[in-house]
Design a protein around this nucleic acid. Structure first.
Lengths: 341, 341
DNA sequence: CTGTTAGCGCATTCAT
DNA sequence: ATGAATGCGCTAACAG
């Protein structure tokens, strides 16, 4: 049998309560007594039974997800995953709820964080908007002892405990190599469609993409970035325009959302024209486009994994446990038409 | 508060013991009483607290991993992951151990299964060798009420409860498309290196690969499969031989293990010769080869994920719980030099 | 400062 | 066929 608190109490010649006090680093124990107990813990090789501890505590951890109120397929998917987690939450001694904030609105996000802080939840997960005021609000939360993890979009320079999302520079680099290799040494222009250069993920993807393109595919030149604000209609208009004006375009990299519009624009171009296209995020639209050949590869982040990972990390943080790092790494999924889930 | 056994006992007007009996479908309850209790359970919306149940039971589940004694990096990695799980196991009320059996030896595997069955473990995970005797042994185990999951390589047609591994047909198809697109319309031969056509995963990868090659890349012709038994030395010899004899080879698909030998052979070929190479399994060797350009893409299955998934499924089976399907899907990782973990 | 005691939600004897 | 009582490993009042 594994050693229990009783064993260590016996070994140290103290009572259960005292053992519990040192185990949970609570005050009210003389230094010598504490040492004695700690020695016993070490010698016996005790490891706390977390399940039993949680049962005794009766406490259920309340976590909050702050998500942007964006109307695109990816965010809808993310929301659905959070809801699925909410549905499972009673079973896992957690109480999860979501708070919606306007998208790309640092002030609103910071305000929401500050309001939340007063309620002292056991942990907070947020899709970060990269701005100083948000970073400060997050830092205040962390300094108040509340675990914070960022999801999808990170907030570097902040004190957040963890980031559950993909490496966006690597994503951009990967997109460049796929596009470059698929184009097999052809010479021409590459159009890049982004949501907004104000968002950190998009900037990073572009940065990675440009770097590899410059280093390894000098025959391909990147046109000025088209900013479609993740809006299907705007993306459609801008891409159509670009395609009609520049017939040197042989490749397209869509690094943001709003792919519905891009796909429409692509389908409207001359059938004689062959474009190689790499896009981000697997949705119903991009999936269909991949299958019918309009898109050649899709880079994706698994929202379900991100949400589950965020919760695991928050829970581990809340009861002082460690996580399995490899399990919490969010990978960049690459989908061709053959390996769709 | 969540309803407990006490609540349902009160609601049904019976004792805790009776509630427990119907909850765990044990005999000794009159039909009417059972109905009454079941009604109460439903109305109250009771869900069992698994942690508390396990605490009360005190039982620790003993799981066994049967792994082939293969001397290649992938199997070493798999073993390491199982060992990591063993290290974590005391914390999770599980007792995991491994049993090694000779690779590609159906009789030995079947024998090991039958021996194990007598010990009645709480669950078994195995890397299956696809043979009737193995399938029968697995079926006997399942019929004895022992949960069984296959890892890495499946055993279709058997009664195993779950398969923790990638879709190998999809993997082969993906390899074909990557190779075909990377070769960009060139004409030539493609060499295929496999471990053994006796294992189902290798057969399936070849099947998927051949299908896409035939359908979509008619200018590439697949040479007869080289079987290297996942052995580096044998692979080295056979691949060197093939490369020297056929100078029409412009692409290589390595669908098994033993890539150490393949890589050596590739590096020994003339520097003037450009080969496009897709291989399976990320190991130290293949990672280095990807980075130095010897290999162009690596398809991978995350052994850590597979092991953790197998354990989760086994545990869920053992205490009659359900799993999150999406979480247990083992994806096909595609690594280019830019998105290595 | 330290110890006693009573649960947390459930499973399991042992009576009845 | 049913119920009362005890304990799993740990925490948290409440006493001393």
């Amino acid at each position: 049998m594994r050693p229990t608190v009783h064993d260590i109490a016996a070994a140290a010649g103290v009572s259960l309560a005292t053992v519990d006090r040192v185990l949970n680093q609570r005050p009210g124990v003389r230094h010598v007594t504490r040492e004695k107990v700690e020695a016993a813990i070490r010698e016996i090789g005790y490891v706390r039974d977390v399940a039993a501890a949680n049962l005794a505590k009766g406490r259920t951890y309340s976590f909050v997800f702050i998500v942007p109120a964006s109307d695109n397929s990816f965010m809808h998917g993310l929301n659905a995953e959070v809801m699925a987690a909410v549905a499972r939450s009673p079973v896992e001694r957690t109480d999860i709820r979501t708070v919606e904030v306007p998208a790309f609105d640092p002030a609103a996000l910071a305000a929401a964080l500050d309001t939340l802080r007063a309620e002292r939840p056991a942990g907070v997960a947020l899709v970060a908007t990269d701005a100083p005021e948000v970073r400060d609000a997050v830092d205040r939360m962390v300094q108040d002892g509340i675990p914070v993890v960022t999801v999808v979009s990170d907030l570097t320079g902040s004190l957040r405990h963890h980031y559950a999302g993909v490496d966006n520079i690597a994503a951009g680099r990967t997109a460049a190599r796929l596009l470059g290799r698929f184009l097999g040494g052809a010479k021409g222009d590459v159009a890049v469609l982004a949501g907004s250069m104000l968002v950190r993920d998009h900037r990073e993807r572009l940065e990675g993409f440009s770097a590899v393109m410059a280093d390894e595919f000098p025959d391909l030149s990147i046109l000025p970035v088209i900013e479609g604000r993740d809006d299907p209609d705007m993306a459609h208009m801008l891409v159509s325009d670009a395609l009609s004006k520049r017939d040197g375009i042989i490749g397209v990299y869509s690094l943001g959302a709003g792919n519905r519009g891009l796909i429409r624009a692509l389908k409207e171009t001359s059938v004689a024209r062959v474009l190689t296209v790499v896009a981000h995020e697997l949705t119903d639209h991009t999936r269909a486009a991949l299958l019918d050949g309009t898109i050649d590869a899709i880079l994706n982040q698994d929202a379900g994994h991100e949400v589950r990972s965020a919760i695991r990390v928050l829970k581990a943080k809340a009861d002082g446990l460690s996580v399995i790092d490899a399990q919490e790494r969010i990978r960049l999924d690459i989908f061709l038409k053959d390996n769709l889930p």
